[in-house]
Amino acid sequence: MAEKDYRLSPRVDQVGIQDRVDRITKRSVKNAAKRKGLYMALNMIDLTTLEGADTDSKVKQMCYKAQHLHDSFPGLPTTAAVCVYPNFVKTAVQEVKGSGVKVASVATAFPSGQSSLEIKLLDTKIAVDNGAHEVDMVISRGKFHSGEYNFVHDEIAAIKEACGKVRLKVILETGELGTFDKVRRASDIAMDAGADFIKTSTGKISPAATLPVTLVMLEAIKDYYYKTGKMIGMKPAGGISNSKLALHYLLMVKETLGGKWLSNEWFRFGASSLANDVLMQIMKQESGNYQSKDYFSKD
């Protein structure tokens, strides 16, 4: 098969994307749907800590939080997963055992991706061997910008092979890609190379996830699904810190890809402070009073 020319990926109508996002953000979500959406969002969160200052205890604390979001109110779901650096995978796996919460690990020289393939493979292998359920890799943005699309493709494919059955999320780092056209192109490359999920950002670069960029990626997923019949997941990450925004994301997923994608198997939020805001909104719905951060566990 001749190599695919990714320069031929569809162009994105920037004004159209922005317009559609504007219409989604102006919609008001009413009570019953809002409540359902909030519970759903909570269950889609990858609770994340990716700091240089992370310690075993901090990871343990976060794993506890993932399973006990707000114990004084029964009936809340857990988050979908916790997301940590490879050296904390072992600790995290132990902590979430039996709870259904998955452990995702970033790998491949996160967040810059500037390293050799050997090291990236080893990084992945360490995460997988330690029991990570999911791997979040970063693409080589430098190579992407130099037009070496096949290099990027093959690298993703190699990491996917190293992952085996472990689900692979491919981080495009859209904040460094520049244009929607390039985001679309990178999405196509990642999906062709075997990504199970495509993810917007590392959270280390601004802008991180935005609604328009996510919409571009969702459209790419839709086209890929029509072409191949294969479902690809989506994970916006970084900068999603309030419930209203989370609900807008869910609306966008539902309207672009359909209800099939509305589970944490196909859609995730990469976030650290979103959980508390969603909790506060849920408690507001339940009690009628606006809440204060003082009464929720710190992240």
């Binding site: 009628g288 009073n289 606006y290 809440q291 204060s292 003082d294």
Partner: peptide, 8 residues
């Protein structure tokens, strides 16, 4: 009522 009940 809202001034008085807001938890924050």
């Amino acid at each position: 009522p809202h001034f008085a009940a807001h938890m924050d």
